[in-house]
Design a protein around this nucleic acid. Structure first.
Length: 591
RNA sequence: GGAGGUGUAGCGUAGCGGUUUAACGCGCCGGCCUGUCAAGCCGGAGAUCGCGGGUUCAAAUCCCGUCUCCUCCGCCA
C-alpha cells in the first residue's frame, strides 16, 4: 500500500520548475523516470506530463529519507517536497528544460509502487505496436505521445475558440441514428425496444447539420465522431473525428475564407505557415498533371500526355490503346537512368497493383538509349516522347498505356513512390491547394449506376443542372477539397436546398421514389418548409494531427486506437456477449 | 476478399539443419561507489524460439497449415 497525499499540495509540475524558484520549497508529484544510485548520493528523475526534473537525495538529509530513496524503482508514483537549488556550474544539463536546477529532497512519499513496465517509458523505442496498444496507458506516458495528446487538445480548443468567434454554435447530433444507403458500411446497433430494428452509428453528421440549417441556426460546428465499417489503413480508423461545420447564406468563397482562417490558426500551433493565397486546381487538371485528386505539389515529375505523339505509332500497344479511347502518359524520373533492372521491375510490379497491364521504360544512359520498346518506335516518336517529358541524358522515362483512370492511378502512385524512395520531397514543405470542379457523379461498373462522388446532397454547379438528364457524367459538383502534401485534409460542398432538385439527383443515383421516401423522406419534407442556401465542410482531425504532429500513423494521434483488424488489444473489444443479452435483443448468431 | 512483410527472455535484435548449454544490447535483481543525467564497475536471474502438423538420425533453422501485428490493393458517398 502506498502512502497518501494527506496535507500535501502540488505546487509545480515537474517540467515547470525553473531557476526562478531557486531557494524556494516546492512540492512535485509524478513518476520515477530513472534512479541513479551513486552509493553516497541518489539522483532521481521525476516525470509528469510536463517533463522531468532531477531530485537529489543526500545522506545529510537524514538516513531514513535516504534509505527510502534507495527503495525507489522505475514508475513508482511519488510526492517530493524539497528546495530548488541552482546546479553548480559544471553540472548543468542543457538537454532538459529543467537542467539548470535540481530539487534537494526533504520529504519523500511513495504514493504507489509499480511493476517494471513491459515497455520502456522513453521516446525512441522500437516496440511492436501490439505491445504498445495492449499497454496503451503506459505508451501514452512516453513524452512523444503525451505531446501529441496535448497538441490534439490545442487544436480542438483553437477550433472551438475560432469558430465561436465567427458565430458558430457547437451542437451535438445523434450517435444512434438511421442507416442510410450510399457510402460506407454502417456500424449497426440493435434496438431492444424495437426488436429487429437497428440504429446506425453516423458516418458523418451530414443530414443533421443540414437540418440545423433548415432550423435557422445559421452556423453549426461539431468535433464529431464518425464511424465507418470499412477496412483500415495507416491513416484510417473505424471511428475517427471530424471538425464538421455547416453555414447558411454562403457561397464557396465564404467557406474558403473561414476555413483558411481556421487552418492558419491550427497550423500555427505546429509552426507551419499557410500561404497568403491557396491555389485552386480543378479536379480535371489535378488528375491530368498528377494522376490524383489529392496531388502532392511539393515536387514535380508531372504526368505528360503522349497519346497524340504515339497515336499513329506502329507500336500497337500504344496506338491501339489510344484508338480505343485510352491514353499513353509518362513521367520523367530525373537521373534515374542507371536504376537497376530489379528496381524498374519493382516499378512495374507496383503499377500492376493499380491494374496497369505493364510499364514501358526508356533509359537515357550516357552510352545511349536503352529501352525494351525503342525498337517498336520510330526515331521521331522517340524524339517527341523525350521532348514532351523534357528528357535529358541520365533520365528514366516511365510510360503507361491504358484507360485514363488506370493511367492516372498507376503513374500518380508511381510518382509518389519514386519521390519517397529517392528523397525528392523537401522536408518541412507545405503545399496547400483547393481542388474544385469535381464531377457530381462517378460511374460504378459493379453496380451499373452512377454514385455520388462526394455525397448525394451536393449541389451541381448551376450552369450544369440542365445536363442532369442528358449527360450526368459531365455535371460538375459545387464541391471542394482542401489538399495538403498529397493528403485530403477535408472536403465539402454547397448543398441542394430544394426538394425537386434533390429528388432529381436521387433519381440520377438510381434511387426509386419509394427508397427516396423511405430513406430520406424526412429530409425531403424538411426542404419544403423554407431552406436557406447552405454549404459546409468537414476536416479529418486525425489527419490534421498526423501532419501537425509529424507522424505517419493515425494510431499515434488517437489515445485508444484500433488495430488493423479493428480490435482493441487493450480491452479485447469486440468480444462475445452473454446469451441473455442477445436474447433480449431478439438476435441469434448464425454459425 | 487478395498481395507482401513480421513473430526468438520484459523490450529490441542475432543465430537460418549439427562446434548453441540459443548469443548480444536495453531493462530487471544483488553488491560496490558522494555529482550523475545513455552514470560506471562486478555478479546474477530471466526463453515451452507465435501455435499445430510434417520431413530428418538431428529443426529456432526446411516444408505445409494456422494465428498475430504491420504495409498495400479492393473497400472508404
Amino acid at each position: 500500500m502506498g502512502e497518501t497525499i494527506k496535507d500535501l499540495t502540488r505546487t509545480h509540475r515537474c517540467g515547470e520548475v525553473s531557476l526562478a524558484d531557486a531557494q524556494n520549497k516546492v512540492t512535485i508529484m509524478g513518476w520515477v523516470q530513472k534512479r541513479r544510485d551513486h552509493g553516497g548520493v541518489i539522483f532521481t528523475d521525476i516525470r509528469d506530463r510536463s517533463g522531468i526534473v532531477q531530485v537529489v537525495f543526500n545522506p545529510e538529509q537524514g538516513s531514513k529519507l535516504f534509505e527510502k530513496a534507495d527503495t525507489l524503482r522505475s514508475e513508482y508514483v511519488v510526492a517530493i517536497v524539497g528546495e530548488v537549488e541552482a546546479r553548480p556550474e559544471g553540472n548543468i544539463n542543457p538537454e532538459i528544460a529543467t537542467g539548470e536546477i535540481e530539487i534537494k529532497a526533504e520529504e519523500l512519499r511513495i504514493l504507489d509502487q509499480a511493476k517494471t513496465p513491459p515497455i520502456q517509458i522513453e521516446d525512441d523505442i522500437d516496440t511492436g505496436e501490439d505491445v504498445r496498444l495492449k499497454y496503451r496507458y503506459l505508451d501514452l506516458r512516453r513524452p512523444k505521445m503525451t505531446k501529441l495528446m496535448q497538441l490534439r487538445h490545442q487544436i480542438t480548443k483553437t477550433t472551438r475558440d475560432y469558430l465561436s468567434e465567427k458565430g458558430f454554435l457547437e451542437i451535438e447530433t445523434p450517435i444512434l441514428t438511421k442507416s442510410t444507403p450510399e457510402g460506407a458500411r454502417d456500424y449497426l446497433v440493435p434496438s431492444r425496444i424495437n426488436q429487429g430494428h437497428f440504429f446506425a452509428l453516423p458516418q458523418s453528421p451530414q443530414i443533421f447539420k443540414q437540418l440545423l440549417m433548415v432550423s435557422g441556426l445559421d452556423r453549426y460546428f461539431q468535433i464529431a465522431r464518425c464511424f465507418r465499417d470499412e477496412d483500415l489503413r495507416a491513416n484510417r480508423q473505424p471511428e475517427f473525428t471530424q471538425i464538421d461545420m455547416e453555414l447558411s447564406f454562403v457561397n464557396k468563397e465564404d467557406i474558403f475564407a473561414i476555413t483558411e482562417g481556421l487552418m492558419q490558426e491550427i497550423f500555427a500551433l505546429a509552426d507551419i505557415d499557410l500561404p497568403e493565397q491557396i491555389e485552386w486546381l480543378s479536379y480535371q487538371e489535378a488528375m491530368a498533371r498528377f494522376g490524383s485528386d489529392k496531388p502532392d505539389l511539393r515536387f514535380g515529375m508531372e504526368l505528360k500526355d503522349l497519346s497524340a505523339v504515339v497515336a499513329e505509332s506502329d507500336f500497337n500497344i500504344f496506338s491501339g490503346t489510344v484508338k480505343n479511347g485510352g491514353q499513353v502518359k509518362g513521367i520523367n524520373f530525373k537521373g534515374g537512368a542507371d536504376s537497376a533492372r530489379s528496381v524498374i521491375d519493382g516499378f512495374e510490379d507496383y503499377v500492376k497493383l493499380f491494374k496497369a497491364k505493364g510499364l514501358a521504360w526508356i533509359a537515357l544512359k550516357e552510352e545511349g538509349l536503352k529501352s525494351p520498346i525503342a525498337k517498336f518506335l520510330s526515331d521521331s516518336e522517340l524524339a517527341a516522347i523525350q521532348q514532351e517529358l523534357d528528357a535529358e541524358p541520365g533520365d528514366l522515362l516511365l510510360l503507361v498505356a491504358d484507360k485514363p483512370k488506370v493511367v492516372a492511378a498507376a503513374l500518380g502512385n508511381l510518382r509518389l513512390k519514386i519521390a519517397h524512395e529517392n528523397d525528392l520531397i523537401p522536408v518541412e514543405s507545405y503545399k496547400f491547394a483547393w481542388i474544385v470542379d469535381f464531377p457530381l457523379f462517378e460511374y460504378n461498373e459493379d453496380e451499373d449506376r452512377f454514385v455520388a462522388k462526394h455525397h448525394p446532397f451536393t449541389a451541381p454547379v448551376e450552369e450544369d443542372i440542365e445536363l442532369l438528364d442528358s449527360d450526368p457524367a459531365a455535371v460538375r459538383a459545387d464541391a471542394y477539397d482542401l489538399v495538403l502534401n498529397g493528403e485530403e485534409l477535408g472536403g465539402g460542398s454547397i448543398r441542394i436546398n430544394n426538394r425537386a432538385l434533390q429528388e432529381k439527383v436521387f433519381s440520377a443515383l438510381a434511387l426509386t421514389p419509394e427508397e427516396q421516401q423511405d430513406k430520406f423522406g424526412f429530409m425531403l419534407e424538411a426542404f419544403e418548409y423554407g431552406t436557406p442556401p447552405h454549404g459546409g465542410i468537414a476536416f479529418g482531425l486525425d489527419r490534421l494531427m498526423m501532419i501537425t504532429g509529424r507522424t505517419d500513423s493515425i494510431r499515434d494521434v488517437i489515445a485508444f486506437p484500433k488495430t488493423q483488424r479493428a480490435t482493441s488489444p487493450l480491452t479485447d473489444a469486440p468480444s462475445q456477449v452473454a446469451e441473455k443479452q442477445l436474447h433480449e435483443l431478439g438476435i441469434s448468431i448464425r454459425s
